[in-house]
Write a protein that binds this DNA or RNA. Structure first.
Lengths: 157, 157
DNA sequence: TATTGTTATACTCTATAACTATA
DNA sequence: TATAGTTATAGAGTATAACAATA
């Protein structure tokens, strides 16, 4: 290995009592976000799904209008058509026209889709064994810090 | 807003002293990773760059072989060719053949590329204002927890 | 008129396989 | 032989603009 990806900036030396700077934390968040998606994509690939298809399924704990899915995925509404098309072709989701507003199509998990979502979550969880090793105090602290840095709109507003 | 993305699982009620479960933290990490990339992509878009192009530039604090870039991005080597092509066409990076091993091409930031990287990082940092508001103790605790859950290969090995 | 979802289009990202050139 | 990088290909994700159906 002739080219190690050493961490950027000037992190504190091992065993030092110094705190990382905000910029150091930003770099660490970049690494963590990349690692999370690497694990998630691997868990989705096991079931022949892409990252986006896996994300989509994960959003369907309850039926959602196409439009809402676009907002939650952070992509244009036109993309959702194709992603849902491919999931529907594999019988993982269904489109159901909303009786109250016939413009809206709610996307619903099939039984196969529910099984797949559970399997992806379970596979991901078994990759994140470090979470299981945190004691209750660390979990509370970690959750609180994550929430401070990226406030949850559902919790906040 | 008729369709709120309420958090999954059974999170502790507001003000409760209860700790989130490992599964709750996994969901929170999903939310955080998505939020990080939403901010990062927005910072890259300001400069007319895609998420992958922005990621690529961010890896080039020092020159890197194409192969290493593929490993760091977690994609096939053949993709790097195209991504670097597009960045090179915009004079943000250069390819330089390694004198010691003429098979290797090191990708180097141009001055324009360096400016762009700084601008992206600065734009991202100003989106993550919550990081600036953490005191030294919280930063140290947050960094340590992030490292426990996603160990840094550079620090660990 | 406004909103939901689809289609058409063009571009980017992606993995696979086959290739060139270096080692 | 093995490795670094490229090309060709096909499929998936992406935004934009134009459109139909519904409100």
């Amino acid at each position: 290995m002739s080219d190690t990806p050493e961490s950027p900036g000037t992190p504190a030396p091992p065993g030092s009592p110094e705190s990382p700077s905000p910029a150091d934390l930003m770099d660490q968040l970049a690494r963590v976000a990349a690692a999370y998606y690497r694990h998630f994509a691997a868990a989705a690939t096991v079931h022949g799904l892409t990252l986006m298809q896996g994300k989509m399924l994960s959003l369907l704990r309850r039926p959602r209008p196409m439009r809402t899915l676009a907002d939650l995925l952070g992509c244009d509404a036109s993309n959702v058509t194709g992603i849902v098309d491919r999931l529907e072709a594999r019988d993982l989701v269904r489109r159901e026209t909303d009786p109250a507003d016939r413009r809206i199509k709610n996307v619903v998990l099939t039984e196969d889709g529910e099984r797949t979502v559970r399997a992806i979550r379970s596979g991901l969880m078994s990759d994140l064994t470090a979470l299981e090793r945190l004691d209750a105090g660390d979990r509370r602290a970690f959750g609180a810090l994550l929430d401070r840095v990226f406030p949850d709109p559902a919790t906040t507003g």
